[in-house]
């Protein structure tokens, strides 16, 4: 069980860190937003492996759900102007 957790965590940390690199370096803002949502999702699995289901639920609901949507709403509001100009 412990070794399974370690293998899972290594995969997760590689995925999270490459996601973070994408989020920070991406040219398109939409890609960066999606990557940051993916980081939150991976982080919630991290919390599950670290024996904290409460935090995992919060991260999945707020970090991956609400924050990502909020970013997209703001992105749409700032981009619509450029499209019309």
């Amino acid at each position: 069980m412990i070794t399974f957790n370690i293998v899972l965590l290594i995969f997760l940390s590689v995925a999270t860190i490459s996601g973070a690199l994408v989020a920070v370096t991406a040219k398109k803002t939409a890609v960066a937003i999606l990557a940051s949502g993916a980081i939150s999702l991976f982080a919630s699995i991290f919390f599950l492996v670290l024996a904290s289901p409460d935090v995992a639920m919060t991260e999945a609901a707020i970090g991956a759900g609400l924050t990502t949507f909020l970013f997209f709403v703001i992105l749409r509001k700032t981009e619509s102007h450029h499209a019309e100009k």
């Binding site: 973070a20 989020a23 920070v24 991406a26 803002t29 960066a32 937003i33 940051s36 980081i39 939150s40 982080a43 991290f46 919390f47 670290l50 024996a51 904290s52 935090v55 991260e59 970090g63 924050t67 970013f71 703001i74 992105l75 700032t78």
Partner: peptide, 25 residues
Amino acid sequence: NILKMIISFTVFDTGLNILIVALGY
């Protein structure tokens, strides 16, 4: 780009949370 700075803030936030939870494990 200011939106990308805010995205980086959330990345920082997530990392800090993982660090704190890991210290209690």
